[in-house]
Amino acid sequence: MNPRHHLDPTTVLGFATGTLAAEMSVVAAAHLEACAHCRQHLRSAERVGGLLLEQQLSPPSAEDRQAALRQTMLERLDTAAPAGGVHDDTVVRSAAGHDPDQLPAALAPHFGTSYRSLKWRWMAPGVHCIRAPAHPSLIMLKIAPGKCLPMHSHGNSELTQILRGAYDDSLGHFAPGDVADLDSDVEHQPVTTPGVACICVSALDAPLVFSGWFARKLQQVFKL
Rank of each mutant, 00 (worst) to 15 (best):
P194N: 13
S58R: 14
L103S: 07
A206L: 02
H31V: 04
D78A: 05
D185K: 06
C129L: 09
A215K: 01
W120E: 03
P109L: 09
A22E: 09
I130D: 07
A108V: 07
E33W: 11
L208G: 00
C148E: 15
P207M: 02
I199E: 15
M140P: 04
M1Q: 06
A166Q: 15
R39W: 01
A29R: 14
A36I: 06
H173W: 15
A68N: 00
M140D: 11
A62K: 05
A83H: 12
L42W: 05
P60C: 07
S61M: 08
Q71N: 05
A108G: 07
P194F: 11
R70W: 12
F210A: 02
C38I: 10
A22L: 10
T160N: 09
S202H: 02
Q40T: 10
A45T: 02
K217Q: 14
F222V: 11
V92Q: 15
G50E: 02
G84T: 04
T90E: 09
L107N: 04
P9C: 06
M73Q: 11
H110D: 02
M123D: 03
Q40G: 13
C198L: 06
D185W: 00
A29T: 07
Y115W: 07
S25E: 14
A22Y: 09
K147S: 08
A180R: 01
P125A: 06
A180I: 01
V27P: 02
G97R: 02
E54Y: 12
P190H: 06
A45I: 00
V196K: 11
R39H: 04
I162P: 07
A34Y: 04
V86N: 05
S117Q: 15
C198E: 02
D99W: 01
P100S: 03
M1K: 12
I143V: 14
V191C: 06
D88L: 13
R164E: 03
A105Y: 03
D178F: 14
R93D: 13
H6D: 05
Q220D: 11
Q71C: 03
W122N: 13
M123I: 04
Q102P: 01
L53S: 07
A68M: 03
L77T: 01
V127K: 02
E54K: 09
L224F: 15
S184M: 00
L159E: 02
L224P: 01
L77H: 04
L69F: 14
D99G: 01
Q71G: 04
F174Y: 15
V48G: 08
A96G: 02
R4V: 10
C129Y: 15
H41D: 12
W120Q: 03
E75Q: 15
V86K: 13
F174W: 15
G50Q: 08
V127G: 00
K147Q: 09
A134N: 03
A34D: 05
S94L: 10
D205F: 08
V26E: 05
R131T: 04
P125K: 12
A105C: 03
A105E: 05
Y167A: 05
L69R: 06
F214Q: 09
V92G: 14
Q56A: 12
P59L: 10
V191I: 12
Q219M: 12
R131Y: 03
A29H: 06
T11S: 05
H135P: 00
H6L: 08
G126L: 01
S170C: 11
S94I: 03
P9I: 08
